[in-house]
Computed example of a mutant assay.
Amino acid sequence: MKQAAVTLYGFGLSLTAVGRLLGSCAQSVMQWVCAYGDRNCPKPEVEPMPIIEIDEMWHYLQRKTNRVWI
């Protein structure tokens, strides 16, 4: 039943619809889908992110009364 729930959810049915079809509740289906994802889909390694420094700047469009943030 758990495998059927994961398959139906993978085909695009909502958690509630899968639960109704299989005679279970949506929370159980969500737990089964999450457990399947944890077992079979490893999380990617976290790479260090570069640090970017951003400063605020004004830009005028056509006249000085039209200030726009960049």
Rank of each mutant, 00 (worst) to 15 (best):
R63N: 06
V18F: 09
S14N: 02
R39Q: 08
V6N: 07
D38N: 14
K64I: 07
A5R: 12
G12C: 04
G23K: 11
G10A: 08
V33C: 05
T16L: 07
W58G: 14
R20N: 09
E45P: 01
L15E: 02
V29L: 08
V29K: 10
Y60D: 05
V29G: 07
V29M: 07
E56H: 15
T16D: 06
R63A: 03
T65R: 08
A17M: 03
T7W: 14
M49S: 08
L13M: 12
Q31H: 06
L13V: 03
L15N: 01
P48V: 06
P42C: 09
G23S: 10
Q3I: 11
S24D: 09
C41N: 09
G12Y: 03
Q62V: 02
L22I: 10
R20K: 13
I51M: 05
E56R: 15
L13C: 08
R20C: 04
W32C: 10
F11T: 07
V18W: 11
G12F: 03
R63Q: 05
P48C: 03
M49A: 04
I52N: 09
I51P: 00
M30T: 02
G12E: 02
Q31L: 08
C34T: 11
G37V: 13
P44M: 04
V6L: 08
D55P: 05
T65I: 02
P48Y: 02
A4K: 15
L8I: 06
M57F: 13
I52W: 12
I51D: 06
K64T: 04
V46R: 08
C25R: 15
N66C: 02
Q31E: 05
M49C: 08
V18I: 12
W69F: 10
Y36W: 13
P44V: 02
E56L: 10
K64E: 02
D55S: 12
C25E: 12
Q62G: 00
V33R: 11
L22N: 04
A35Y: 04
Q62M: 01
D38I: 14
M1L: 09
C25D: 15
K2E: 08
G10F: 06
A26E: 10
A5M: 11
S14Q: 00
L15R: 05
T65H: 00
L21Q: 14
S14G: 02
Q27F: 05
L15I: 00
L13G: 05
K64G: 00
V29E: 04
T7S: 15
T16R: 15
T7N: 14
A5K: 10
E45W: 02
G37C: 13
F11G: 04
I70Y: 06
Q3N: 13
V46P: 00
G37R: 15
S14Y: 00
N40V: 13
W32K: 15
I51W: 06
R63E: 00
G12D: 00
G12V: 05
I51C: 02
S28Q: 13
H59P: 00
Q62F: 01
Q27P: 00
T65V: 04
W58N: 11
I54L: 06
I54F: 07
F11L: 14
Y9H: 15
L13T: 08
P48M: 04
L21Y: 15
